[in-house]
Simulated scan of single mutants.
Amino acid sequence: MAKDAKPEEGAETPPKKSKKLLIIILAAVLVLVLAGGGAAFFLLKKSDHAEDEEAAEEIAKPAKKDKKKKDKEAPPVFVNLEPFTVNLVPETGDQYLQVVLSLEMEDSTGEPDLKAKMPKVRNNITLLLSSKKASELMPKEGKEKLADALKVEINSVIEPPVKNKKGENVAPEGPVKSVLFTSFIIQ
């Protein structure tokens, strides 16, 4: 028993070395884990930020395209005018023209200008219609020419023509895109 009671000197030193070695290994592993975790955090944070920027750019781009599409796909704005009844230039006796017009506008911003100048627009349309002959208006081409002339006349009232460098009157494009006949009767 005496042998069991004596601790051996050699037995004590190896456990001290193994404890120090174990602590050093654990410290090294802990440093590596923390360094790896920190690096991963910064890399993921940076890539998330880059993805957020890309997502923001992608969101902004379709918004611009949507605006362009909305402009192109915007439903047309139509303004209906009251009927016009005029005497035509006599060819074979008295002839009358009754016409109902609908104006296709570029957008709704031109409508207030049109309504503000409606008395002058109606006067100029009446004068233009009453200067025509029934034979001019009967064929399809005559109606198309009349529609173009009405469009130019209405746009010139809304946006008066300006003179260019040569002194010629140039009619700017007005808000009226086309003139449509909803009723066209010659008697």
Results as ranks from 00 to 15, higher is better:
residue 185 I to K: 09
residue 154 I to V: 14
residue 178 S to A: 14
residue 97 L to N: 00
residue 35 A to K: 06
residue 144 E to S: 08
residue 145 K to I: 06
residue 32 L to T: 13
residue 103 L to P: 08
residue 118 M to F: 07
residue 54 E to N: 12
residue 15 P to A: 13
residue 124 N to G: 02
residue 153 E to V: 05
residue 17 K to D: 05
residue 136 E to G: 01
residue 107 D to S: 15
residue 82 E to Y: 01
residue 21 L to E: 13
residue 176 V to P: 01
residue 74 A to D: 04
residue 115 K to Y: 12
residue 137 L to D: 01
residue 116 A to Q: 13
residue 7 P to N: 08
residue 90 P to C: 04
residue 90 P to R: 05
residue 91 E to W: 04
residue 186 I to R: 02
residue 73 E to Y: 05
residue 98 Q to M: 11
residue 143 K to F: 06
residue 81 L to V: 01
residue 170 V to M: 09
residue 109 T to Y: 09
residue 77 V to K: 15
residue 18 S to M: 10
residue 43 L to W: 08
residue 114 L to T: 01
residue 64 K to T: 10
residue 171 A to M: 11
residue 60 A to I: 05
residue 171 A to E: 13
residue 83 P to S: 14
residue 185 I to C: 03
residue 67 K to Y: 09
residue 170 V to Y: 09
residue 91 E to F: 00
residue 161 P to S: 03
residue 7 P to E: 07
residue 53 E to Y: 00
residue 73 E to S: 01
residue 113 D to N: 13
residue 181 F to W: 01
residue 9 E to Y: 07
residue 33 V to G: 06
residue 187 Q to A: 03
residue 25 I to D: 02
residue 132 K to A: 02
residue 101 L to S: 02
residue 59 I to N: 10
residue 104 E to C: 10
residue 6 K to L: 09
residue 32 L to Y: 01
